[in-house]
Design a protein around this nucleic acid. Structure first.
Length: 580
DNA sequence: CGTGTTTGACCTGCGC
DNA sequence: GCGCAGGTCAAACACG
């Protein structure tokens, strides 16, 4: 195929051109008195002219071709026309039943082009010589026709093969779409059931929410893992009462502020009064990012004390990377570095700088066991629009954190919730997500190290497995053998997209202008899901979007075979990421 | 000069 | 109460 001139048709390298060297090297050519040989030989580097001037029979019939080719073209005009007619007939029949009727005629045109030129050139070769020496031009012509027929057969066989391949791809795409729709419907129905159960539960336990929040939180955990209202509230308050007392003062206040804003944008109102607590600092309610508010002041009530026991949820992503930091679509500023115990690699602390008061921070540290693994731990929620490259990651991290916080009072509950979540959302998967609320912080760990190659998308995109692992030491035995590369893709894409993020983050609509877009029905359904329930499931929806998008990118890449920068466009940016 | 990084100091929670 | 570890600050420094 590589040396097959027919193959070169599909690469838009007309076979004529490949045949030229032979002709031009021929002694007859070299000694030919015709000066236009040089022009023809040169013409192999000017493909468009070959196509335009000599390929079209119409051109040949109607308008006089350029002088340099006129001589040759006129030589066997009859034969050329005949051949053209033959080939056009065959080409038309083969193209008529093809699905892509819009593209195949062009292909046929290309085929005719090459063959005509070949015929012409060969004939020209013959003619120029025959005029002087050989009288058996008829035989040569017959041989040429046999050659042409052979080429045509090859071309048509190739066309058939491409048609079959195209059909296979279409079938695969249909299957993927069908599976996705089924999964989506299943997901939505389960979401509705879950909401109904939550409503019932809240009606029963509503009083407890007021009086004893911590206790109620523990009770509600198993059924509220998707309730972002509570989850967000928990998130709103937990950061303020989390880990370091200092950190509460500085980082938690903005977190609370942001979280409260996000709560306002989320679907449901606050079940409890904690939405205000996010703003209500014990000192009297000045919730400025710079304020250092003692979280555990004695004036706190039981709710605050209960919250004091809660910890800041985090989402940790493990990925193989040689880079010092994974580019995840956001801009970060390093504000500290410490040597952590038990790890010779220092831990770097970063703060999101895409917005002035963005509370999101992340820690980056290499794994002690395998230093090729970069562990990035995210904390907090962005309070600004995100570039598409960061949407999937941000949604998932924040939503996973919310989900985790909703059940963070008990690691067992968290695990149960995670497993139930995984079963709910990923019915096809056998590997359950595990989310740990273990010390020091409730953490969701996404292990991407099992599938480092972003180009290897899941063979069955409808089957998702998310190895959410809370216990790092379980990574080695992780069933995360086929993480759908939600984040892997995002991470790799983000590294390419980071240069665009600042200019696009303010206008999510622009995200959809990427070269790779989802089918409208996919984006609609995913967007609807996200809009309806801005929680962890939304993140999964975004993940599904990313996967489908990635699959599309691969298909496009395979079809076009010319765009190596398939990662330049990621995705699902047109989903409302700011509201989660 | 603005921005980002480095690094020592500081603060806090937690365990003993 | 003390020490340790995690987390953060902010001055100094580097860089474009």
């Amino acid at each position: 195929m590589d040396s097959d001139p027919i193959g070169s048709f599909f690469l838009h390298k007309p076979i004529v051109l490949n045949s030229f060297p032979e002709d031009t090297n021929h002694p007859k050519w070299k000694h030919s008195p015709h000066n236009n040989m040089d022009s023809i030989a040169r013409a192999k580097y000017t493909i468009p002219f070959q196509v335009n001037f000599s390929c079209s029979p119409n051109d040949r019939d109607s308008s006089p071709p350029p002088h340099h080719s006129r001589t040759e073209m006129d030589f066997f005009s009859d034969d050329n026309n005949n051949n053209n007619n033959k080939k056009e007939d065959k080409g038309s029949t083969s193209a008529s039943d093809h699905r892509h009727s819009a593209t195949l005629p062009t292909l046929e045109f290309e085929v005719n082009t090459g063959l005509n030129l070949l015929t012409t050139n060969t004939s020209s070769d013959q003619s120029m010589v025959d005029d002087e020496t050989s009288p058996n031009s008829e035989d040569k012509r017959a041989k040429d026709e046999v050659k042409i027929d052979r080429y045509l057969a090859v071309v048509q066989a190739e066309l058939e093969r491409m048609k079959r391949e195209n059909q296979t791809l279409r079938d695969s795409l249909d299957q993927i779409n069908a599976n996705y729709n089924a999964l989506h419907m299943h997901f939505m129905s389960l979401m509705q059931q879950q909401k109904a159960a939550e409503v019932e539960e809240q009606e029963v336990l509503g009083g407890k929410l007021e009086g004893n929040k911590g206790e109620s939180a523990g009770v509600l955990v198993p059924r509220q893992f998707m309730d972002l209202g509570l989850a967000t509230n928990a998130d709103t308050d937990e950061p303020s009462s989390s880990s370091g007392g200092r950190s509460q003062d500085r980082s938690a206040s903005p977190s609370a502020e942001v979280a409260s804003k996000e709560v306002g944008t989320s679907k449901n109102g606050n079940v409890n009064d904690e939405g205000d607590d996010g703003e209500d600092n014990p000192s009297g309610g000045h919730a400025h990012a710079g304020d250092k508010v003692p979280r555990l002041s004695p004036s706190k009530n039981n709710v605050d004390q209960a919250e004091a026991t809660m910890r800041k949820a985090r989402v940790s992503v493990r990925a193989r990377s040689e880079a010092p930091m994974i580019t995840d679509g956001c801009q970060w500023r390093k504000y500290g570095q410490k040597m952590a115990k038990g790890n010779p690699c220092p831990r770097a602390y970063y703060r999101c700088t895409m917005a002035t008061a963005c509370p999101v921070r992340k820690q980056v540290q290499r794994c002690a066991e395998d230093r090729t693994i970069l562990v990035t731990t995210y904390e907090g929620n962005h309070n600004h629009p995100l570039p598409p490259a960061a949407v999937a990651m941000a949604q998932t991290t924040s939503s996973a954190a919310k989900m985790l916080l909703s059940g963070s009072m008990s690691s067992a509950d968290g695990l149960m919730n995670a497993n139930f979540l995984a079963r709910t959302l990923l019915p096809c998967s056998s590997s359950m997500a595990t989310i740990s609320a273990s010390a020091p912080f409730p953490t969701v760990t996404l292990d991407l190290t099992q599938s480092p190659n972003p180009l290897q998308f899941p063979r069955h995109p409808n089957q998702l497995q998310i190895p959410l692992q809370g216990v790092p030491q379980n990574f080695a035995n992780s069933p995360a053998s086929f993480m759908p590369q939600i984040f892997g893709q995002a991470l790799y894409n983000q590294s390419k997209f980071s240069g665009l993020q600042t200019s696009h983050d303010a206008d999510p609509s622009q995200f959809g202008n990427n070269s790779q877009q989802l089918p409208s029905h996919v984006t609609d359904t995913v967007s609807a899901a996200i809009a309806a329930d801005p929680n962890f499931t939304a993140a999964l929806a975004a993940a599904i979007t990313s996967i489908i998008d990635g699959a599309q990118q691969r298909n496009n890449s395979n079809n076009t075979n010319n765009n190596g920068n398939m990662t330049a466009s990621t995705s699902n940016g047109n989903t409302s990421n700011a509201k989660q």
